[in-house]
C-alpha cells in the first residue's frame, strides 16, 4: 500500500532519526511512503487569529499537492506538521468564506476544499495495521525497557484534531505494548515542553523540561518516547545542565517512536541514527541486549 507522505523540514536535517526508521519500518510492514512532490514548510504553528489567512497558505498548499497527486490521505510523522496541516484542512472544509478567499488568493493552484485526510503515523499503525498485527511482526521485543510515552501538545490539542482521547490518551501506550516494552504512565505526558519559547526565553525551557523529565523518572521510566523534533530539542539540549544542577540525575534518553519500531522489527539499527539523539540512548539499549 502506498501512502502520500509529508515529511516536514526538520525531518530532512536534524530529525532524520525520526524519518529514516519510519520509512524503513513501513517498508518492512508492506507500506510505501510516497513523498509528496514540491512540498513546502507547513508553517509549524497554526495561526490563531481570525483575519490572518496568509499564514494558512503554507499548509493548504501542501494539501493541494496531495490532491494533485490523486491521493485522499496524507501521513505525517512530525506532530507539529500533523497539527498545522490538520487544522488548516478543517478550516478549508468548514469555513466557506475563508476557503473562497484562500482559493482565490492562490490563483495559480487548483481549488481545494478539505478533501484530503491528514493522518499521523500512529493512527496508521493503530487503524490500518492494528496493535495485535503489529505485535506479530515484532522480531526483537523491547522487553524490560521502561518507557514513558510523551505526547506533548500537538497530537492531542485542540480537541477537533486529537488522534486519541485528550484527557486520557492510550495510543502510545498501546504502541509500546505491541513492541513488547513496558509503558510507564506519568501525569506530565501531555504537558507542554515549552515549544517555541526556546527561541525567546531559552532559560525558561530547562525548568519546563525538568518538570517533565523528573516526573517520568520518579514514575520509574528509563527513557521518554517522543513524536516531535521540537520536544526532542527542548527536552534534550539542556540535559547536561540539568545533570549538573540536580543531584542524582544522570540524564534521560529520548527516543522517537519510529526508532523503537525499527528496532523491534529487527531492522538494522543504523537506520535509527542514534547519533542524532539527545541524551545518548545506546547504553540503555546495550544493557537490554537490543544493540550489539
Amino acid at each position: 500500500m502506498r501512502l502520500a507522505y509529508y515529511p516536514g523540514c526538520t525531518l530532512k536535517t536534524k530529525a532524520r532519526n525520526l524519518e529514516e526508521p519510519a520509512i524503513a519500518s513501513l517498508e518492512a510492514l508492506g507500506f510505501e511512503l510516497e513523498e509528496i512532490p514540491r512540498w513546502n514548510c507547513c508553517g509549524a504553528v497554526h495561526s490563531l487569529a481570525d483575519d490572518d489567512l496568509i499564514h494558512q497558505v503554507a499548509p493548504v498548499r501542501n494539501l493541494i499537492r496531495v490532491k494533485e497527486q490523486g491521493k485522499d490521505a496524507v501521513v505525517t510523522l512530525c506532530s507539529f506538521c500533523f497539527n498545522t496541516l490538520k487544522r488548516a484542512n478543517l478550516l478549508m472544509k468548514d469555513d466557506a468564506e475563508k476557503r473562497d478567499t484562500l482559493n482565490s488568493f492562490m490563483d495559480e493552484e487548483i481549488d481545494y476544499s478539505g478533501e484530503v485526510r491528514v493522518l499521523h503515523l500512529l493512527e496508521v499503525l493503530r487503524d490500518e495495521i492494528g496493535w495485535e498485527a503489529l505485535a506479530q511482526e515484532v522480531k526483537f521485543p523491547l522487553r524490560n525497557l521502561k518507557l514513558a510515552p510523551y505526547y506533548g501538545c500537538t497530537l492531542l490539542r485542540p480537541r477537533e484534531v486529537a488522534i486519541d482521547s485528550v484527557e486520557n490518551p492510550t495510543i502510545l501506550r498501546e504502541f509500546l505494548k505491541a513492541l513488547g516494552a513496558t509503558p510507564v504512565e506519568f501525569p506530565e505526558s501531555t504537558r507542554c515542553c515549552g515549544s517555541y519559547q526556546i527561541v525567546s526565553s531559552p532559560d525558561s525551557i530547562s525548568g519546563y523540561a525538568w518538570d517533565i523529565l523528573s516526573s517520568a523518572l520518579s514514575h520509574g521510566a528509563e527513557a521518554l518516547v517522543l513524536t516531535c523534533p521540537l520536544c526532542d530539542y527542548d527536552l534534550g539540549q539542556g540535559q547536561k545542565e540539568l545533570v549538573k544542577r540536580h543531584n542524582g540525575f544522570k540524564g534521560m534518553p529520548l527516543f522517537y517512536f519510529t526508532q523503537l519500531l525499527a528496532l523491534a522489527l529487527g531492522l538494522d539499527p543504523q537506520v535509527c541514527h542514534f547519533e542524532l539523539n539527545h541524551g545518548s540512548p545506546e547504553s540503555l539499549l546495550r544493557e537490554n541486549g537490543l544493540l550489539p
Binding site: 536535517t13 536534524k14 509549524a44 504553528v45 495561526s47 512530525c78 507539529f80 515549544s195 517555541y196 521540537l230
Partner: peptide, 10 residues
C-alpha cells in the same frame, strides 16, 4: 531545529 525557528518567528 527548523520548526523552532519557524514557529518562534511566526
Amino acid at each position: 531545529p527548523q520548526i523552532a525557528m519557524v514557529s518562534g518567528l511566526r
